[in-house]
């Protein structure tokens, strides 16, 4: 079924004209739609179940049958969960950490990517290797030394330690995304800018960054959701309950109230809502995520250098 869907677009145009081909195409499209809907439904089901679970009234015996709302819908769970857990504070904390983390990341990652793209090929290769290597260092390898380090300089229990990874662009991938983007910008543009007396910083700010706007949006959203989702760091590095982020807050809620699945699930819904919203924004603004990956991985033809306005270069649908 899958391979048929795969082969169809390849059908050559002369053959499309024949009636038999047209019918087979229609059936193929129908089959494809069916398969695609099933696949999507499988991935959507957990989220639907999550929402259903979050709306079950508290204190009722758990369901023993597949039954949507045997005891009515309890919208009040979403109010109640704010009462039993300091979710407002935690959401605020997460928002602050994630916004700062994303902002700093955009600057540091684009700097690093920009600098890398300007380097001679040998150094470039080394730096890409370094970035890939950094991805392979297990985060658990740095838990304890970082903890000792931050404690030594008295930064534990501050948000500085949570956003510290933004210094190196949060994740090497984000640096590489900028690098792949900037590498596609014709170096002539920078050379001519340099001739006009523009500094490196100026080239970065007024030429490179504007051309990389879609990458910036993607990096900002990836970084934001990284800090929003981060669990181990705040679990280890924060101490005061009033500074906890929402990820740690969920764990506290899980530990504290084992009897209330519906409230826990309501808290989960609240936590994931911003992340999902951001990704939907990213998706719609880039007209399908595959397009971006395709661009930054430079899978399209090699002579496709950006020389003109960014909009036309990036948003043309393949």
């Amino acid at each position: 079924m899958r391979s048929r869907g795969l082969a169809l677009p390849a059908a050559s145009s002369q053959r499309l004209a024949s009636v038999g081909w047209r019918r087979r195409l229609a059936i193929g499209a129908l089959v494809w739609q069916g398969a695609a809907i099933v696949a999507a439904a499988i991935f959507l089901a957990p989220l639907i179940w999550l929402i259903v679970a979050s709306l079950q009234p508290v204190g009722q015996p758990p369901l023993r049958m597949l039954n949507w709302f045997p005891n009515g819908i309890a919208w009040s769970n979403y109010v109640e969960v704010f009462r039993i857990a300091p979710l407002t504070t935690q959401l605020g904390n997460s928002l602050l950490v994630s916004a700062v983390g994303a902002g700093v990341t955009v600057v540091t990652a684009s700097w690093a990517g920009f600098a890398m793209a300007q380097m001679p090929p040998v150094i470039r290769r080394w730096l890409v290797g370094l970035a890939l290597l950094l991805m392979l260092v297990p985060s658990s390898a740095v838990w304890l030394p970082r903890y000792i380090l931050f404690a030594a300089i008295g930064l534990l229990d501050t948000y500085v330690v949570l956003v510290a990874p933004a210094l190196l662009g949060t994740k090497s991938l984000l640096v590489l995304m900028y690098y792949w983007t900037f590498r596609r910008i014709s170096s002539e543009m920078f050379e001519s800018a340099a001739l006009d007396g523009a500094s490196v910083g100026r080239s970065w700010w007024s030429i490179a960054l504007p051309l990389a706007a879609p990458t910036t949006l993607a990096v900002a959203i990836l970084a934001f959701s990284h800090y929003w989702s981060d669990f181990v760091d705040p679990l280890l590095l924060l101490k005061s309950a009033q500074r906890f982020t929402v990820a740690v807050g969920l764990r506290m809620l899980q530990q504290m109230d084992v009897t209330n699945w519906s409230l826990l699930m309501a808290a989960v819904v609240i936590m994931i809502a911003p992340v999902i919203a951001l990704y939907l924004i990213l998706q719609s603004s880039l007209r399908g995520g595959a397009n971006l990956v395709q661009r930054i991985m430079r899978l399209d033809s090699k002579d496709d250098k950006i020389t003109t306005e960014p909009a036309s270069a990036f948003e043309s649908e393949s």
């Binding site: 960054l209 910036t216 949006l217 603004s285």
Partner: peptide, 24 residues
Amino acid sequence: MIRLMIWVIWLGVGALMLAACVQP
């Protein structure tokens, strides 16, 4: 798009400075 991006950066820098001021 570019304006949005600049805005995000300023928000980040501003929040960082705010955090730095609040601590002491």
